[in-house]
Computed example of a mutant assay.
Amino acid sequence: MDLFDSMRIFVRVVERGSFSAVARELNIGQPAVSKQIRALEQYLGGAVFTRSTRLLALTDQGQGFYRHCQDILGQLDSATRSFASGQEQIAGPLRIAAPVTYGRLCIAPLLGAFLQRHPDVRIDVRLSDHNEDLLKENIDLAIRIGVVKSEGLVAVSLASSTRRVYAAPTYLDRHGLPGKPADLANHNCIAFTLLEHYDRWHFTHGAQGLDVTIKGNVTSNSSEAIREMVLAGLGVSLSPEWLFAADVQQGNVRSVLDDYQTTALPVSAVFSRERRRSARTMAFVDFLREHL
């Protein structure tokens, strides 16, 4: 048994919550994962997991051992990478999670330039409009839009996402142009449900703040879907500028209520407190801050 290999597999089983998930991740059979854990338990002289048909949980001793493994493997990983040059190399795998549309439009186009600067990094981009569990999914950093409230996460500010109200000319021809936020009460408003208080849109005009409770016959948790519905003339949407930038240039969509400001959303890089931030992770964060 290679003790460090067994410790690495043990840590991944804890983070993924199952032997089969780790077997798929490592492209090995589930019996091989079970064998490593059994060998580790024999070496330790006790069980690290309590097993049942439905639940895989750490024993009390296993919880303490897991924390020690994180520290030991983190130090070993850092020492191995820094041996050659006296400092940690910007190389190796980098797993990134981002919202689908923001990742496609704003993150993916930058990856070529980053990899030219750091050719020894291998990037795995995972796009989802739901917040991934960074530990469970083995993600190094996630891009989040909006206020980060999750406990145990560290957020580094990258940029801000300015928003405007958008509608297609075909919709405005049928329903008229809103001249002030209160006019939205007479319009079909398409809400993005992943934001807190998505049914209230906030505007400012000078020193005056205006909250509008919007209504409409459709909502969505996908900014891609909202874009398509606006393009189809279904209604108006309060959306980030990057979502409709190309459509505005092409004349397929126009912004309205431009005399009123809306609340910009923070764009952050998010890490788990429990994972050590590598040089490649921080290099990517610095690169995003530079380009975003």
Rank of each mutant, 00 (worst) to 15 (best):
S18R: 00
V22C: 04
G209Y: 13
V14Y: 05
L40Y: 02
D183P: 01
V165K: 07
D124Y: 06
E15P: 03
A225R: 07
L127I: 01
D5Y: 12
S34G: 13
S78I: 02
I226E: 09
I143C: 09
D258M: 04
P181C: 03
V148S: 01
G206C: 11
M229R: 15
R95L: 03
L195K: 05
A155N: 08
L73N: 07
S220V: 13
R254F: 06
Q36G: 00
L105E: 10
R126I: 07
L210N: 09
A98H: 04
G74N: 13
Q75C: 03
Y171R: 06
R200M: 12
T281Q: 13
P31T: 04
V148C: 04
S237P: 00
W201A: 11
L210V: 15
A23T: 06
A279D: 01
M229P: 07
A108G: 02
K215A: 15
A279I: 05
R273T: 11
A155S: 12
F83D: 07
S157Y: 00
S268Y: 06
R67I: 06
L141F: 07
S161H: 00
G17R: 08
A232Q: 11
L292V: 02
V22E: 02
R51D: 00
P99Y: 04
H205M: 11
T213F: 12
R16D: 00
I139N: 04
N217I: 13
P178W: 08
S222L: 10
T204P: 02
Q75Y: 05
F284L: 00
W201Q: 07
Y43T: 04
G146C: 07
L243M: 10
N131C: 01
R289K: 13
H187L: 13
V148P: 01
R227W: 04
A182G: 09
I9D: 08
L292A: 08
S85L: 15
Y198M: 05
E228G: 10
V100E: 11
R276W: 00
T213D: 15
A91M: 14
L55D: 12
H202L: 09
D124E: 14
E228H: 11
L3R: 12
A108W: 02
Q250A: 14
V248Q: 04
P93V: 03
D60Y: 01
E25C: 12
D71I: 10
T204V: 12
L3Y: 09
